[in-house]
Measured scan of single mutants.
Amino acid sequence: EIHIRTNGEEQARKVYKMLAKRNYDVKIEQHNGQWVVTAS
C-alpha cells in the first residue's frame, strides 16, 4: 500500500488520476487538513 501526502486538493487529484490509470485502487483522505492519497 502506498501513502502519498500532498499539499492540496489539486495535487491530490493529479496523483489520484495518475495512480488510477495504473489500475491501483485509490482513495483520497484528509488527515489534519492534509490530503493523503492511498493506493493499493
Rank of each mutant, 00 (worst) to 15 (best):
T6W: 04
V15C: 15
M18S: 09
M18T: 06
K27I: 07
E29Y: 14
A39D: 03
N23E: 05
D25G: 05
H3S: 11
S40W: 11
E29F: 14
I4N: 01
H3T: 14
I4S: 02
H31W: 13
R22Y: 14
V26G: 02
A12D: 00
Q30M: 10
T6V: 15
V26F: 01
V36E: 04
I28S: 01
E9P: 11
E10K: 13
R22T: 07
N32G: 09
G8L: 12
V36Q: 05
I4H: 03
N32T: 03
T38W: 06
R22P: 02
Q34H: 11
E1D: 09
R13N: 06
Y16S: 10
W35F: 05
V15E: 03
G33R: 03
S40E: 05
H31K: 11
Q11S: 08
E9W: 14
K21A: 14
I28N: 00
K21E: 14
N7L: 10
I2N: 02
Q11G: 05
K17H: 11
Y24G: 04
L19W: 04
L19F: 08
Q11T: 07
K27Y: 07
E10G: 06
R5N: 05
V15M: 07
G33W: 02
Q30S: 06
K27F: 06
S40I: 13
A39W: 12
N32Y: 06
N32H: 07
K21P: 02
Q34L: 10
V15H: 03
V15S: 02
A12C: 15
Q34P: 00
A20K: 15
V26T: 03
N7E: 09
M18N: 08
K17V: 11
Q34I: 14
T6K: 04
L19R: 00
K14L: 09
K21L: 10
D25P: 05
V15Y: 11
G8E: 12
V37N: 00
A20M: 13
I28H: 00
T38L: 10
V37S: 00
E10H: 08
A39F: 14
H3F: 12
K21N: 09
M18Q: 11
Q30N: 11
G33V: 02
I2F: 12
N23D: 07
Q30W: 10
V36S: 05
H31M: 13
T38H: 08
N23I: 04
E1H: 15
K21D: 15
K17N: 13
R5L: 13
M18W: 15
Q11Y: 11
I28P: 00
G33P: 01
E9R: 08
N7V: 08
H31R: 12
K21G: 10
T38S: 07
K14P: 02
H3W: 11
A20S: 09
V37I: 08
R13C: 15
Q34W: 13
A20E: 10
L19I: 02
V36G: 03
H3R: 14
K21Y: 06
N32R: 05
K27W: 07
S40L: 10
L19P: 01
V15A: 05
V26Y: 01
Q11H: 11
N23K: 07
E9I: 13
T38R: 08
Y24T: 04
K14R: 12
L19H: 01
V15T: 03
V15K: 03
E1F: 14
A12W: 03
